[in-house]
Design a protein around this nucleic acid. Structure first.
Lengths: 115, 115
DNA sequence: CGATCTACCTCGCATTAAGAGGTAGTGAGA
DNA sequence: TCTCACTACCTCTTAATGCGAGGTAGATCG
């Protein structure tokens, strides 16, 4: 009964941030989003399908993403996602939250009673 | 049906890091651990009892912490925790994981296709 | 014709933060 | 005295979510 990796727990809550981030630059389909995140994180993150697709659906339902199906000349159809105005605002919120959170951890871990 | 705060999700997995960190400097009892984390994080984190106590018990069961009961001259008895050798190693592991994780997020959020 | 890759999806499990609730001791104020 | 507030511990249930496993399907190549 191995403890789950620390990483898996840390990842909780970051998927929307990562997804919205890679979609800020261009529209992408699901499979491609996962690749982009893997590339841009330097291999640090590789979101599994079991977490990526539900997250995409949630963001779409929220109005943060818009999506449509397109044919591919080779392989199955793809669902392309693009970020909406609401999604941009949500991204900003996630970025701010992350920054404040990371600052808090850094401060706590840094040293004893540092003002 | 409000979404839970982003913060709450981000916090997942960081409790052991924060607890071990404040115990690195001195032994403390539970209530005090929460205060210490609140102080040192600059008010950014205020672990609830429902997450703190279970975390302490888990760390103790793992051998990362040792604990004993002591009387207080005023108020209820206190359970003092101190970090063990194993706990020190676990802390190092959590610090490394956190650093690599934060670096990954920073890199991903930073800019497009940065090698 | 089977294997492999792309590309989508869902279900169930495990982990964990938080809130609500419970037990007690101490001390201050109506 | 009685009540309230604060300390200090605990546990139970709920909600969120990453992940693995499983499933469907088209395309391509040996």
């Amino acid at each position: 009964m191995r403890r789950p990796s620390i990483r898996t727990q840390l990842l909780k809550g970051t998927t929307p941030l990562l997804v919205l981030t890679v979609l800020r630059d261009s529209e992408l389909y699901g499979y491609e989003i996962a690749q982009r995140i893997r590339e841009r994180s330097g291999g640090a993150f590789a979101p599994s399908e079991g977490s990526l697709y539900p997250a995409l659906h949630a963001l779409e339902a929220e109005g943060a993403l818009q999506a449509d199906w397109r044919e591919s000349d080779k392989g199955p159809k793809r669902r392309y996602y693009r970020i909406t105005g609401k999604g941009g605002a949500l991204l900003a919120e996630h970025e701010a939250e992350w920054a404040s959170f990371a600052r808090g951890v850094a401060r706590t871990v840094a040293g004893p009673t540092n003002a």
